[in-house]
């Protein structure tokens, strides 16, 4: 596990458009932290990024998506003919990417938890309120995202459609239900430790399933839509 992870991380700087990606990574990371901090409000209020405007914690989503950047950069190494001649070509697309996704997502999720705990202390909110909704505002979505990142490079169109549907169902459905009072925000709150455990369980499950799926789909060509016009060669 460690060897693949180290190799994957060392390949990041050889990915496509490395400097641009690095700048974007830093910007998105800072924005993610800013949204998480500024959007923190106790669960009872209707329109906060944290408690469920659209049912999703957008700050956490930002940070968790940022965690998938290194994986994508490593994957783009596999686009080159040189990488295709290497014995590690399968590993790059499957083990390395999913392990990097797992590790960086764990770090990102821990960062989200730490920020929320700090905000709870600063704003004197109870920990139950601050962390209790993590499982549905970040955990479920992280599971979906990890599966998305495993599949999207192969079946771009289908995964995009499914992602819209899931985003609408989970995000809007929850947000609408909570916002209009059909489900009280309080009934969705778990004990903070339980919420943490569920979130991490979703994360690990997503990574494991993602690994399995990317192995199954390895033989399929990388979808040419997934890398934009600038990365397609004329052949």
């Amino acid at each position: 596990m460690k060897k693949n992870l180290k190799k994957g991380i060392s390949l990041i700087r050889y990915g496509a458009a490395f400097k641009l990606n690095l700048v974007l990574f830093i910007i998105m990371f800072v924005l993610g932290i800013a949204f998480e901090v500024l959007g923190f409000r106790a669960v009872g209020t209707k329109m906060s990024l944290n408690s469920g405007f659209m049912g999703i914690d957008l700050g956490a989503v930002f940070l968790l998506c940022t965690a998938a950047f290194p994986g994508q950069m490593t994957l783009s190494v596999d686009l080159s003919a040189l990488a295709q001649t290497s014995p590690h070509k399968k590993n790059i697309q499957t083990s390395m990417v999913t392990k990097m996704n797992l590790v960086f997502s764990l770090i990102a999720m821990t960062l989200v938890v730490v920020i929320r705990l700090i905000m709870c202390a600063v704003t004197h909110t109870g920990i139950t309120e601050g962390l209790g909704n993590l499982w549905y505002s970040a955990g479920i979505l992280e599971f979906v995202l990890l599966l998305f990142f495993a599949v999207c490079y192969k079946y771009f169109i289908a995964t995009m459609v499914v992602m819209y549907l899931v985003l609408m169902a989970v995000g809007w459905g929850l947000g609408f239900a909570v916002g209009s009072g059909v489900i009280s925000a309080m009934t969705l709150i778990l004990h903070p430790v339980a919420s943490l455990l569920v979130s991490y369980a979703f994360l690990i499950l997503g990574a494991v399933l993602g690994n399995g799926i990317s192995r199954l789909l390895y033989q399929k060509n990388l979808s040419k839509f997934a890398f934009g016009i600038s990365m397609q060669r004329t052949k």
């Binding site: 496509a16 458009a17 990606n21 998105m28 957008l58 940022t66 994508q72 600038s230």
Partner: peptide
């Protein structure tokens, strides 16, 4: 239209949604 990957596009879309909201 400058961005080279799926994730960047998705995150920019999220960012636009946040600013809009």
């Amino acid at each position: 239209r400058y961005l080279p990957g799926v994730i960047q596009q998705m995150m920019t879309a999220f960012l636009a949604v946040v600013v809009f909201s």
